[in-house]
Write a protein that binds this DNA or RNA. Structure first.
Length: 569
RNA sequence: CGGGGUGUAGCUCAGCCUGGUAGAGCACUACGUUCGGGACGUAGGUGUCGCAGGUUCAAAUCCUGUCACCCCGACCA
């Protein structure tokens, strides 16, 4: 492609709307253009990369035996009513009516539609297992779209759905997708990790996420330093401490702690480590006006997902308001404690291992010291309530946990009968008996992958595309092209040769100064740069530089094709 | 949705407090010089000052409303 015929608009300045690096670079490089909150156009250079990602995904899905389909973006409400998600999904589901006043949704995902297709077309176990996939625009009316294409409202997803007669087949299909995803992200040249996940609103039993590792990632992921255990922080189990709880030594005493509303303030005022204080959080119960107390060590954080799974706790988790707290305890937040509290109480395993601890006295400006379980507090249920921390023992039993950050680019689920049951997708088995199908679903955020690739691969000059995703493999930079007949002749010939040999070459034949061309080549992140200049040609040499390198190398001009080919991939 | 903030040229922003001719840099067009790391000169085009109402002789500027967008918290590929 000749750059003179390829309108690109690179910017030196960072647009004010962009917060994260990938977003800034995508705008500066002219890959995308924002149309409205969370809605983006993909311009030619950006689309080239997007298509490369799609191609890798298609090849690997096809290789895994999945069949490509396209389903409608807009879906009839009836299907969503049948699966109950019409009411369960919430405001993220964009709903609208057509001219006949019929209800529709803009598809955020396609479990309902694919299940509808399968229940009508698949009648026999002999047609199973089967896996359908599509690469398609999805719409989720995110409360707050941000980070550009990373969390947009409209985005492109590869979604796949597999159907099975029995659990063994489902596991096999799931495993095949796990392997396909591993190949996909490996081929894309990304540093990624598969982690145990929470299933969220899609539902189901088993699920794993694929994360591209990047310091700016939105998710915390944890892994063992000794085996292959890895999980999303929100799904990582915190093991109970091994050491038995020490015996009580102190008597319980009430102390005045004016204004000490946080663990930090309390810890400073009483000169007690946060780990010896008890944090008491009141959350709304599932019954009207009910509250539930969650008890944690002062230095630990509540894990909302774990908490909202407990019996009696409202879903989604909501902290109790000031009025409810006052009604339940007679005090205000900051001075709550389990002693004498009469609501349902769950205590984290580590909190239960404390002896002689400090907690709120359910009285303004008062705390209790020397508090002990059983002796002073009764009726507490043990539970895993907290987020794990770096250094905690791994739930796998081997090693300690490390924490890093990741961008979720893929998610695979074993859904079981969550959709096939309500939508009545069943086939006859070999004995002529009707069996409800088991289902798996598998998603990749294609547009997000592109952003994640940049988030993981950039420097102060711009994008550094992993080669499989780069819009062009080679950027050909002639210097003083307009004046030097020799440069033009060599560059034109090189361009023809390289292109004819199947390489994707971006030929910067603009009438621009060298600095401009170099800067754009680096911002755009083209992996291989070939410079043609009079200075080198005097000695019969060309100059080559790999985008990640800081130094250039020279080589004989007549060996360009071999030289480049040896360095591709 | 709650809290904070911003809307002025394609982009980054100044001007607003204290009302009186709408600006700078980048980008864009033409010409000339320059040409191995984001050049320079000359000339040029570019605006519903987010929108609507109000106050005033006069509003980018003051007042009211409204819309959009961005940032911080609960969701997801």
């Amino acid at each position: 492609m000749r750059l003179s015929q390829y309108p690109i608009n690179t910017a030196k300045e960072t647009p004010a709307e962009a917060e994260v690096l990938s977003h800034q670079l995508m705008l500066r490089a002219g890959l995308i253009r924002r149309e409205a909150a969370g809605l983006y156009s993909w311009l030619p250079m950006g689309l080239k990369t997007l298509r490369k990602a799609e191609t890798i995904i298609r090849e690997e899905m096809d290789r895994a035996g999945a069949l490509e389909v396209i389903m409608p973006v807009f879906q009839p409400a009836e299907l969503w009513q049948e699966s109950k998600r019409w009411t369960e999904y919430g405001p993220e589901l964009l709903r609208f009516k057509d001219r006949h006043d019929r209800d529709f949704v803009a598809g955020p995902t396609h479990e309902e539609v694919i299940t509808d297709i399968v229940r009508r077309d698949i009648k026999s176990y002999r047609q199973l297992p089967v896996n359908f996939y599509q690469v398609q625009t999805k719409f989720r009316d995110e409360i707050r779209p941000r980070f550009g294409v990373m969390r947009a409202r409209e985005f492109i997803m590869k979604d796949a759905y597999s159907f099975h007669v029995d659990a063994a087949s489902l596991q096999q299909g799931y495993r095949a997708m796990y392997d396909a995803y591993t190949r996909i992200f490996t081929r894309m040249g990304l540093d990624f990790r598969a982690v145990k996940a929470d299933s969220g609103p899609i539902g189901g039993d088993v699920s794993q996420e694929f994360h591209v590792l990047a310091a700016s990632g939105e998710d915390a992921i944890v892994f063992s330093d000794e085996d292959d255990y890895a999980a999303n922080l929100e799904a990582a189990a915190a093991l109970p401490p091994k050491e038995p709880r020490p015996a009580p030594r102190e008597a319980m005493a009430k102390v005045s702690t004016p204004g000490a509303r946080t663990i930090d303030e309390l810890s400073r005022m009483l000169k007690v480590e946060p780990s010896r204080c008890l944090k008491t959080l009141l959350v709304e119960g599932s019954q009207e006006e009910d509250v539930v107390a969650l008890l944690l060590r002062g230095d630990h954080d509540l894990n909302a997902l774990k908490a909202q799974r407990l019996p009696g706790v409202a879903t989604p988790l909501r902290m109790a308001g000031a009025e409810r707290i006052a009604r339940a305890t007679g005090a205000q937040a900051g001075f709550i404690g389990p002693v004498g509290l009469r609501c349902r109480m769950y205590a984290d395993h580590s909190a239960l291992a404390l002896a002689d601890f400090v907690c709120g006295a359910n009285e303004k400006d008062m705390h209790l010291t020397g508090v002990n379980w059983d002796r002073d507090v009764a009726g507490v249920t043990a539970a895993d309530l907290r987020n794990v921390r770096e250094g905690d023992p791994s739930p796998s039993g081997r090693g300690r946990l490390k924490i890093t950050r990741g961008i979720e680019v893929g998610h695979i689920f074993q859904l079981g009968r969550k959709y096939s049951e309500p939508l009545k997708a069943a086939v006859l088995d070999e004995s002529g008996k009707e069996v409800t199908l088991l289902m798996g679903c598998y998603g990749i955020g294609v547009t997000r992958v592109v952003a994640a690739a940049i988030e993981q691969n950039h420097d102060e000059r711009g994008i550094i595309w992993p080669e499989p995703l780069a819009p062009f493999q080679v950027v050909l930079v002639p210097l003083n092209l307009q004046k030097s007949a020799r440069v033009r002749e060599v560059a034109d010939r090189l361009y023809s040769e390289l292109t004819a040999s199947g390489l994707e070459v971006l030929y910067d034949d603009r009438d621009a100064r060298p600095g401009v061309k170099f800067a754009d080549a680096e911002l755009l992140g083209i992996p291989h740069r070939l410079v043609v200049g009079d200075r080198g040609l005097e000695a019969g040499r060309l100059e080559y530089r790999y985008r990640r390198d800081s130094e250039s190398t020279e080589f004989p001009a007549d060996q360009a094709l071999d030289f480049i080919k040896a360095r591709i991939r």
